[in-house]
């Protein structure tokens, strides 16, 4: 394939994809960036756009509610991804054992992943229902609680309950990645360590975990990026409440746009959230790249 034609073809083949992505993502991104320096509002009557420099940003950075929302997002992200990681690895280790029905269980694990996010949120909302929820009933019948609780109506527990629902849906992904990595651990390595006298626990920490760490890191960072923009589950389960206790950054921006109709100010929040995401994305690439080069070495 010759220089010039090769080059032409390269761009011809890419052109439709680039066009779509530019229209739907790149241009809106630039537009959001521009809006963040204006005082635009969403209204039926077009009003003149006024450039107000960094005013939105100064406000956003000093806005305690936004900072709260960021902290909540961070809490949600760290706890749910952390739990998904621990649960995922534990499940993978379990599924990597041979026991009766291990293939069935391995197949079953995909179900939570297949449940649509919104259905997951709705289902858990029903389970957490303060009067007729399955969780209350179960814990009550087991004697673990004496009174029904309002799991997601109580600011103290709401976020953790949302996290539990999110972990239930997303641990299979981590588990599958960890399992795939586990299956590449050479059996000889473990046997050698066992002969050297290392117990199962020691073997897990010094052989298995380091071996699967690369892929595990990559999927965890990917989950972090997804968790950081959490919106759907919050929208359905709690609507950001109670008392803003589950209002995350994405939800905050959403409200700024579509409840308060302040598009300029909303855009500045969006840009800040996007900036944090960008850092996470760069982190993802560096870990994925390390994984890719490590895998070929």
């Amino acid at each position: 394939m010759f220089g010039r034609r090769r080059k032409q073809e390269k761009w011809i083949l890419l052109a439709p994809a680039i066009l779509v992505l530019a229209l739907i993502t790149l241009i809106p991104l630039a537009n959001t960036f521009w809006l963040s320096f204006t005082d635009t509002r969403i209204s039926a009557i077009p009003s003149p756009v006024r450039f107000i420099g960094l005013e939105n940003y100064i406000y956003a950075l000093t806005d305690p509610e936004f900072r709260e929302a960021l902290y909540r997002t961070l809490y949600f992200t760290i706890v749910s991804v952390g739990l998904e990681g621990i649960l995922g690895v534990a499940v993978a280790v379990l599924l990597n054992q041979k026991f009766r029905g291990h293939l069935i269980l391995r197949a079953l694990i995909i179900l939570p992943w297949a449940v649509p996010t919104i259905v997951n949120a709705v289902a858990w909302r029903l389970i957490y229902h303060p009067d007729y929820g399955a969780l209350n009933s179960l814990l009550f019948q087991l004697g673990l609680i004496s009174d029904y609780r309002s799991w997601i109506g109580d600011p103290a527990t709401a976020m953790n309950m949302v996290i539990l629902a999110d972990v239930w849906k997303n641990f299979p992904l981590v588990a599958y990645v960890a399992l795939a990595a586990l299956q590449t651990v050479p059996a000889d390595l473990n046997k050698a360590a066992a002969i050297e006298g290392a117990g199962p626990w020691k073997r897990f920490w010094s052989i298995t975990l380091p071996w699967i760490m690369g892929p595990l890191m990559v999927v965890m960072v990917l989950r972090t990026i997804e968790a950081f923009r959490v919106f759907d589950i919050i929208y359905v389960m709690t609507g950001g409440g109670p008392a803003d206790s589950t209002k995350t950054a994405s939800f905050y921006v959403y409200q700024e746009y579509f409840n308060y109709l302040r598009s300029g100010s909303g855009a500045s929040y969006a840009v800040l959230v996007a900036g944090i995401s960008a850092v996470l994305i760069l982190f993802y690439y560096s870990s994925a790249k390390r994984q890719a080069t490590g895998a070929t070495a």
Partner: peptide
Amino acid sequence: MMPPITYILPL
């Protein structure tokens, strides 16, 4: 990987 809120308003 960017949050959709980044694109939503201009769209």
